[in-house]
Design a protein around this nucleic acid. Sequence first.
RNA 1: GGCGCCAUGGCCAAGUGGUAAGGCAGAGCUCUGCAAAAGCUCCACCGCCGGUUCGAAUCCGACUGGCGCCUCCA
Length: 457
Amino acid sequence: MIRLLDTLTNEPQELPPPPYDVKLYVCGITPYAGSHIGHAVPVVVFDVLRRYLEYRGYTVRHVTNFTDIDDKLIDRALQQGTTVKALADQFSAQYLASLKRLNALEATVYPRATEEIGGIVMVIAGLVEKGFAYESGGDVYYRVRQKADYGKLSKRNIDDLLSGARIDPTELKDDPLDFALWKGTKPGEPSWPSPWGPGRPGWHIECSAMALGHLGEQIDIHGGGADLIFPHHENEIAQSEAFTGKAPFARIWMHNALLRLGAEKMSKSVGNIIGLDEVLDSHGADAVRLFILGSQYRSPVTYTEEALEAAKVGAERLREAAMATARGTGGGAVAPIDAEQVRAEFTAAMDDDLNTSKALAVLFELARGVNRARDEGQNFRPARALLRELGGVLGLTFAAPPAASQEATPFVELLVQLRTELRAAKQWALADRVRDGLTELGIELKDSPEGTTWRRT
RNA sequence: GGCGCCAUGGCCAAGUGGUAAGGCAGAGCUCUGCAAAAGCUCCACCGCCGGUUCGAAUCCGACUGGCGCCUCCA
């Protein structure tokens, strides 16, 4: 039984047994800038969740949104002399391309706020009608004090929030804590018609409307980064449950810890970001996944070059085993690896709130089993197949790490060929000079009965 | 100030009552013409103090150190 820790109740929750169609909503991004390595965390975590659910027999309806209209986009577009749409399209496409490189499964739907205005307006209108929201000067605000349970997700008390000095009281709001569902248009901003005049949606409402529209009034899992717990998800619960009159809005709330860089979290506002594509270029998808999955998703991971490098070497180790080929015939007895036992260990780890760290330990031990079986001339293919199967659940590609440059390839191959001939002639000293020279240039050679292979290090 | 989290070997990281998974790095050995890869072996008593218990990294309390949210943020 899969148990996932729910942020709201702070207790493990379970899903109905399969066959069951899991309704999963994962908060996406506001596409106003390029992605950094921190964005890869929820992507990988929820991709693994999805792959694991499917592995266990569930079907998953997965929705991830793009909030393609908001203050940052408007500011950035103005600043760059472009349109909000052009900017949002550019970074949305870039984000999706990065997801693909990360080997993340595509969501069932990627709704965009600007294409869901009708649904958003409908939800806002419903909230106004029920007295949970009010129009004021062309804006519409959600009345936070209307429902007593506001703050339940983030464990906040309304009056404690009030004492926080950083809340900016707006004269248009009845209460300083009320938040905007709809913002009346200002000159030069994109706007859409509404019963309250032209304007655009506020930040939180689009997710409620999209979850409602694409998944229904009550969903199974709602996920995102821990930084979204307040105010975003708190407000989403409030709106959604007020609108539908049904609770819980989500059966399970899952939040991944934020990636840190040195002492601080990695964040655009702090400015300490490392581009996602750059890391993918230099280390490859499996290394990024191993880096992220090396710790449980609720524990914060700290980005360091050393940790990424360690993950890269580890990925290479798994790849070597997953791609292992026989030495000699490899036709001996089947390796004594109990596939059911290994699967059981892997599954037990994953069932326990996605303990990917422990699941990876199972994979590494399995990799050792594959290698040992091969070294001993046993039939290691079933074990190798199992490694590929379980690695696939974690979204590993087992692909060769990226090569920095292809230009040198013909020259390297010429040298490798030359060395092969020298070795055939037992010209060891000369052969070694070639290999040592290549090693210094970052080319590692590997001799085997089938010939010499090489790779960049 | 409010809410919450964390502290395990050189680095990363599992483990929440019965005596420390795994990865990276390091040492030795095997294999290899030499290497690489791989295999084998070795490498921790769990921030500090006190308490509960037959027994604690694991429960309780205090302390120290670090972090997150409360404001846009994955």
